[in-house]
């Protein structure tokens, strides 16, 4: 894996998200109440809503458009709903957020 530093943990509000623009579209980077970080495609599997603007609770996010709840760790819709969002490896080191660049940057081997 090649890790890319995309910003400071404190640049993301707790229970919130910021967006990273990539060639494939936007990736939402979430910071949960316990300062864990998750990265998912910023597109709800239901009708493409911006998950980065949803309500973060526990380790889930609720899409602001129609209320689908997505698990941040696996990108899967919870409960009786069906749907999946691509996830990207993310970690925090020394207060910085690192994302696995493999699928995010032009020209890298998948």
């Amino acid at each position: 894996m090649s890790w890319l530093d995309i910003g400071a943990l404190d640049n993301i509000p707790r229970r919130g998200a910021r967006v990273v623009k990539t060639v494939h579209g936007c990736v939402a980077v979430f910071r949960t109440h316990d300062d864990r970080v998750f990265a998912l495609d910023d597109r709800c599997p239901h009708k493409g809503g911006p998950l980065s603007e949803g309500i973060v609770h526990g380790h889930d996010v609720t899409c602001p458009l129609h209320g689908m709840v997505i698990g941040l760790a696996d990108g899967l819709a919870t409960g009786a709903d069906k749907g999946a969002v691509a996830t990207y490896a993310a970690r925090v080191e020394g207060g910085r957020i690192l994302l696995d660049a493999a699928r995010l940057i032009r020209g890298t081997a998948a």
């Binding site: 890319l4 640049n11 990273v20 936007c26 020209g107």
Partner: peptide
């Protein structure tokens, strides 16, 4: 600043 994207990777090349 908080309302803008955290990073822009579209210009990055491996």
């Amino acid at each position: 600043a908080d309302f803008a994207p955290l990073a822009d990777l579209t210009k990055e090349v491996a």
